[in-house]
Design a protein around this nucleic acid. Sequence first.
DNA 1: ACTTGGCACTCGGGAACACAGAGTGCCAGA
DNA 2: TCTGGCACTCTGTGTTCCCGAGTGCCAAGT
Lengths: 338, 338
Amino acid sequence: MVDDRKLAVLRAIVEDYVSTNEPVGSKALVERHNLGVSPATIRNDMAVLEEQGYITQPHTSAGRVPTDKGYRLFVDRLSQIKPLSGAERRAIESFLAGAVDLDDVVKRTVRLLAQLTRQVAVVQYPVLSSSTVRHIELVPLTDRRVMLVLITNTGRVDQRVIELPEAVDESRVAHLRAMLNACLDGCGLDKVPETVADLPEHVPVEDRPVAAMILSVLLETLVERHDEKIVFAGAANLAAGGDFTVGLRDVLEALEEQVVLMRLLGETSDSAALTVRIGSENPYTGLRGTSIVAAGYGSGDKQLARLGVLGPTRMDYPVTMGAVRAVARYVSQILAAS
Amino acid sequence: MVDDRKLAVLRAIVEDYVSTNEPVGSKALVERHNLGVSPATIRNDMAVLEEQGYITQPHTSAGRVPTDKGYRLFVDRLSQIKPLSGAERRAIESFLAGAVDLDDVVKRTVRLLAQLTRQVAVVQYPVLSSSTVRHIELVPLTDRRVMLVLITNTGRVDQRVIELPEAVDESRVAHLRAMLNACLDGCGLDKVPETVADLPEHVPVEDRPVAAMILSVLLETLVERHDEKIVFAGAANLAAGGDFTVGLRDVLEALEEQVVLMRLLGETSDSAALTVRIGSENPYTGLRGTSIVAAGYGSGDKQLARLGVLGPTRMDYPVTMGAVRAVARYVSQILAAS
DNA sequence: ACTTGGCACTCGGGAACACAGAGTGCCAGA
DNA sequence: TCTGGCACTCTGTGTTCCCGAGTGCCAAGT
């Protein structure tokens, strides 16, 4: 039914359409690729492919365009991820190596990815729950107010100002701080709730309200900030290729909607592998016409979060996938080293 | 030469053009505004205004459109900043009041401003140099590596990982930390360099290389992060109004170019007042056709940074200016309170 | 000196139309 | 199963035409 030549035709159609952005016809196809058969034969194949739903024609008697299903087949079976050139690899490496802290790593990564793929890049901050507590700091601001700073082994720093129920002097704060660090240093963030559960009982009675308040904020911080933070870059690339003159608005909206982005990147996050979501496979309405290529990254074997790019369905999947995979690997390296 | 009625005509043209987005002709003008004269008279006035460069016609025999110079005159002399409604004020207040830390304040502010003005909002993080050191923390990560965390009175937290020239144990780190805090607590950030200048001499000889390293990173942090951080939101609004179908790319690029944004917001930052920069007054090429309305904000009398919106030259200046001013004030309040 | 009505003129934008070109589907023959 | 040929169907483009909104100017009125 779908023999080898038909697959070759589909591949050729995808490749040509991606590079020219115009519906591709049977004649042009045999000219550009040496398929060894005549246009008429191709036409027959195309008719079959269309019936199967892999390609479609914008109007009667125009060339064919791949459908989402066609792209899917292309990605799954017809294409090979294209590795980056040596020069690109070196560029990535040196660019990422210059990062000074986690924020910087993320910022550089997202820019790099955007530039490399000429698409919109999206990077999720490392998920807290798979990291461990490196240090907890309590900084007295006034006598009824302290700042809680949480530092993790991935270099992430979270801060919250806490309004205390009563005035507390420095030494009590110092004591609480010491206690917190003693309990939690090196503790996995997902373990924190159970670890602190009975902590208030080990505290002098008069300190309990304060301790309870601090712990509740600490837990809140862990939960709320869980994986809330996502950054993107390269929105200008959306306006570049002639695609998206319509729908651009929706895409921009989705990009600013952290929740939507989260779901796009994360919904498949059980696997660290390269994930491609094509057009209508996408859960979000405004993102028909866009595809997402994402990969997990993390230090060592622990997966921390995901990153990827978002672009028109009509994108160069082999190259994009290569870039995303490479960047994910390099970021993992960098993070593992710090 | 430019008498009252001509000014009234200019005002009417700006108002009509802003609301309809179509060149406005003499007839429509007398219909919509009761100017008490005939279209022919208006035509004469318009001819003069055009000669003076305040308005122009896209093609011979089309209506008139304000020039940048025309908008400028409108903003300076013909319009009154429109205060927000009570409901809007309350909404702002409650929305900003929910912020938990500085990051959150900034994030909420930028979203609020974007939503309020239906334009792209831009907020610069408070400039470090006008804040003071609240606390400095050194966290040992490994024996040759510490994390430096700098907390300011505005709630800003900066972090840097430092590679030490030699192994250092906890107690030495604790000692250095104590010393740093003793010296710098409450110190204005702009005063830090001179304050720490002779610090290494007060340190045991064997600690000097480490101390010097830490101080140099601290100074770097102050300088580099000086006012580097800017966030924006509402890019989707660009695609909304029919403006910008062309040039959108440039605008998006500018938005991601921190440096450009900085200059746009900051170049007039000597004054805390409301600043409007219209179209070609703008230093950046890609931003012809866009205007910027910005204001300084800060706690108390100290100006910390600037915020504003960026939109098409054809924007509703009175409303936008009102919104920017109001938000700047509320943010200042919130920051002063924390 | 300013305002007004009248009038001829100028464009831009939309509708109607024709036409070339690319592409298809189908059929009969190899 | 492939191929060449042929008739057919579209889209996109260019042309022409016309309407309407708007202008500039002039001469007359206040």
